[in-house]
Design a protein around this nucleic acid. Sequence first.
DNA 1: ACCTGAACACCGTTCAAGT
DNA 2: ACCTGAACACCGTTCAAGT
Lengths: 212, 212
Amino acid sequence: MYAVKAMPRPRSLTPAQLASAALAVIDRDGLSALTMRAVAQELGTSPMALYRYVADRDELEALVVEEVLSTVDTAAPPDESWQDRVGVLVQRMRVAIGGHPAVVPLLPVHRHRSPTVLRWTETVLGVLAEAGFAGTRRVVALRALLAYAVGAIQLEHLGPLSGSGTDAMAGLSPAEFPHLSATAADARRVRPDAEFDGGLDLLLRGLAVSSD
Amino acid sequence: MYAVKAMPRPRSLTPAQLASAALAVIDRDGLSALTMRAVAQELGTSPMALYRYVADRDELEALVVEEVLSTVDTAAPPDESWQDRVGVLVQRMRVAIGGHPAVVPLLPVHRHRSPTVLRWTETVLGVLAEAGFAGTRRVVALRALLAYAVGAIQLEHLGPLSGSGTDAMAGLSPAEFPHLSATAADARRVRPDAEFDGGLDLLLRGLAVSSD
DNA sequence: ACCTGAACACCGTTCAAGT
DNA sequence: ACCTGAACACCGTTCAAGT
């Protein structure tokens, strides 16, 4: 028999546990409650134990982002038109994020590191390619879709919800802001889903026209 | 003569000085360097002196955001088509923010409290109204433009610049991500301005089609 | 090898005191 | 009235020590 190597003490946690504990903290107490100490407490260990699994707080945040995004189905949907297929892909992303609104501010920062985002982007590009988009036009189309998705999701979740937004809108003097105060009334009647769909539809129409 | 009231000690600072000192800190050392202590040092006072002018750090951030946005000309531009006029208004916003990329993460959070954003929105709505948009269609058009602007500006400034983004894209296996690796090469040749303009143009085309 | 506890260098903010 | 300095309750992270 060969000499038995010193048995490494088994890890007591997995990155997946880290991610879901951190997400639980955020969902329950908000993004500002996400601290190394809070996540450690959630897992019943000491704060420093986390550093066996992540290099720093930044990496913990990236883990949370991927935890949320990993639920997105990145397979190409079966719909007939390419507009519908792109629309479904964007909607899947929106729905996944909508379940955890408090993580929204983390998304722009950590989007790059997410394997799910890479696969999602690959699928979107495939649909666009089939639809005849190539070269610069495809780059512009992709970035426009991403920009709209990122922006619309943020507007939806860091928007009027924060409270002071709607208040400021409601207290506008119709004399100084005629269009704005008129639109504020209309805006209250538009459901977030319809707003998101409507904007996405505008962009998809623009893409369709540009491909003529 | 009446009894002379106790002369209030004159304030040594103005909110404008606070705002520009805070912006100077951010521009020089980045957003993470924005602390009450750093701004106080920039102004040559004690940290607690700032609390005479702002209630808390949040209000300081709002001041910085407005400092950046206040340079935006919110008057309706003279261009002929409504598409061009909306386009110019969005571009003005982008240019103002582009001068201070480090404040980008603050914008979604404090956008609501900015008087400049209110005036800008009023102007955009006016152009849309002239173009025949009303009711729900106008709400959707405005929110779509805002979403695109917010998202595209963030993608531009927290995008590949952060480093790890382009690295991740460059190291993709063409086998697993054929479209993505092909597009990554194309993407490097598209200038940020052209990308932003192109996406905005897609949205404006969509708006034009929807108004038929 | 993995985990812990104390400690360091920061934060924002409260409070009592100075002029 | 306005400003200051010390102090409090937090952070993320380093380090030396335990098992």
